[in-house]
């Protein structure tokens, strides 16, 4: 564990908590893509199946449980409890167009052709593009609430910090995982446009509004 990895994990945790609190306190999931949340739940479940057969540390186990539970709670809020506030019409991204290629790629490019390893690889590929429905929703409505922007910033920063973690591990431990690194770069790049808007607008107190 190094500082980049820890900051990345905390940023990830913060993002998930911010989203849950936003939905809970405003009693609304307006502006949030349920499609992206479904993809994240698939990502966590596929990746953390190793909870069943591998023990790494209490930290690792607890974080995995928190990510899976928080993700399922978010979906419950969006599709059951606060269903009336969910913006169905704008959240029209077809997630099968992300799931199917991620699965095919995981079957073709992986470290080992075993069920758990393929699911891990699938989760890495899917996570890299899982935010697309959310970014699509923001681009369709042309704006995002500040709190949604903070959520997106924390979520995007997490993989960016992981990139620094991988650079550190390469030099300090001679350890690297090309699949995770390439997918992590793709994931972070997808947020760049948003990061730019966040820094130039939201941090200056303005609403995140896309040019018409």
């Amino acid at each position: 564990m190094n500082i980049f990895r820890l900051l990345g994990d905390l940023s990830h945790l913060l993002a998930i908590i911010v989203l849950l609190l936003k939905i809970w306190t405003t009693r609304s999931c307006a502006g949030i893509s349920g499609k992206s949340q479904i993809l994240f739940a698939i990502v966590y479940i596929a990746r953390y199946l190793d909870l069943l057969n591998t023990y790494i540390s209490a930290y690792n186990t607890i974080m995995k449980f928190v990510f899976i539970s928080a993700s399922l709670a978010t979906i419950f809020f969006m599709y059951v409890k606060f269903k009336a506030t969910y913006d169905h019409n704008h959240d029209s991204f077809r997630i099968e167009f992300l799931i199917a290629p991620a699965l095919v790629l995981a079957l073709l490019i992986n470290h080992e052709f075993s069920p758990l390893e393929i699911l891990w690889t699938f989760s890495i590929y899917l996570e890299s593009v899982a935010i697309l429905p959310q970014l699509f929703l923001v681009s369709k409505t042309g704006e995002a609430e500040s709190i949604t922007s903070h959520y997106l910033f924390a979520l995007g920063s997490y993989r960016g910090l992981y990139l620094l973690n991988w650079v550190y591990r390469y030099y300090a431990e001679d350890h690297y995982d090309l699949i995770a690194i390439v997918a992590g770069v793709v994931q972070t790049v997808l947020y760049c446009d948003f990061f730019y808007l966040y820094i130039t607008k939201v941090l200056k107190g303005k609403k995140l509004q896309l040019p018409a």
Binding site: R47, I56, N60, M63, K64, E112, E117, H175
Partner: peptide, 10 residues
């Protein structure tokens, strides 16, 4: 590279 069986990152 590390052990394929174990992914210690989240």
């Amino acid at each position: 590279a590390g052990d394929v069986e174990e992914h210690d990152e989240l």
